[in-house]
Design a protein around this nucleic acid. Structure first.
Lengths: 209, 209
DNA sequence: TGATCGATATATCGAGCCGATAGATTGAGG
DNA sequence: CCTCAATCTATCGGCTCGATATATCGATCA
């Protein structure tokens, strides 16, 4: 799950660990509050698999992108080298996604695991999918929500104890699920509309004077 | 988190592991689908801590609760003993909550961890709390939801990329959170109403002809 | 100058949780 | 009698989290 998040963010831009966490928080918000304890091991895994690679190692923000002309450059470089020797470099490792990583991202988007958090994450990265993939993900999500609703209803019917708090909990959960299904329905409708639009653009069979 | 669930269920009745899982699923439903991989280690932990204890070891459903009078008893016992020796007992360990466990349940209910799942679980066990505890839990939940809403709004304001799917996700999440807050508000109101009712019963200061 | 403080940044550890799986018993039906 | 599905306890590997360690950077203030 963290791997999906990392690859999705890295597809947008090359980032180092700390930035990655900030982007994760800002894009996915309350979903998937990835901690360092999962982020760094996941980056290692992905690097071992060849899905991401270290693009650059930054040792300080003061370093200019291009070497400056003039006599000061040599001195500054010598200073930085000395500092690195005595105090150690900052060692900001900037990661980027590889072609293999993009393939892996595709797999992870398509895999059937589909709880609240996984689905939210996939939706946040929908721009990387084509429309058929989006539609199938939305439809699977809808099927899951409907099944869950059905299960809850059966559980309510078979319930013996009638605690008011449990009842309130179940009712609220049911309402939320229904609203989620409506929402997914709207997303599906919008997606199908755009799909029709794509088709019209591609093959305009209708007579146009 | 699993410990809270176990203690809350065991407070209702003594159960063995498998039954515990079934009750967990039926009471908490889609929240907290506890797996065996967490259930059995948690039971061990709780037993080690003295919060639960093995009340009985059942080796078959045919065994009557009370020993029957008459000559058949001895023979039946011998048969069971032989079966146990040759094929091994079923070893259904029935767990019960201890006084120490009830204290632990109180602690877990009061602890500040308060995400979606924890709160749902606590609400399902509200009948074990007094009204002030319930109110403070509800109010803390409301505060958390409000804070989350505020954070999301700030994140939206600071957003640069304008992906329609991310936008849809955030909007839906915001709406859901607002509805959750309304729901909590209603629960709080109902609780306060009943609190007032309790007070009227206890000290009827108002003149009543 | 230097002293301190909060943010930045990488990394690891223990413990808990989950999904898969093993291994065994029991009851129903063929 | 045999097989099959359900019941029941239990463990394993892998992932995740919260806490923590370690170190640098930038700003503020004396």
């Amino acid at each position: 799950m963290v791997e999906l998040a990392i690859l999705g963010i890295l597809k947008e831009a090359d980032l180092h660990g700390y930035e990655l966490k900030k982007h994760l928080r800002s894009v996915l918000g309350p979903l998937s509050n990835v901690s360092f304890g999962s982020l760094y091991p996941a980056l290692k895994r992905l690097e071992r698999q060849g899905a991401v690679a270290v693009v650059a190692v930054d040792d300080g923000p003061a370093r200019p992108a291009m070497p400056l002309t003039g006599s000061l450059t040599g001195e500054a470089a010598a200073f930085r080298a000395r500092r690195r020797a005595t105090r150690g470099p900052r060692n900001k490792k900037v990661y980027g996604i590889t072609p293999l990583g993009e393939a892996r991202l595709g797999e992870l988007m398509a895999n059937p695991a589909d709880d609240e958090r996984s689905f939210g994450m996939k939706l946040a990265f929908f721009r990387w999918c084509d429309r058929p993939t989006r539609l199938s993900l939305l439809e699977r999500r809808r099927a899951n929500l409907r099944q869950r609703l059905e299960e809850t209803r059966r559980a309510v019917a078979a319930q013996e104890g009638d605690d008011p708090y449990v009842r309130a909990l179940i009712e609220h959960d049911t309402e939320s699920t229904i609203r989620d299904i409506d929402w997914i329905d709207r997303l599906i409708a919008s997606e199908q509309e755009q799909l029709a639009g794509d088709d019209r653009d591609k093959e305009p069979t209708g007579g146009h004077p």
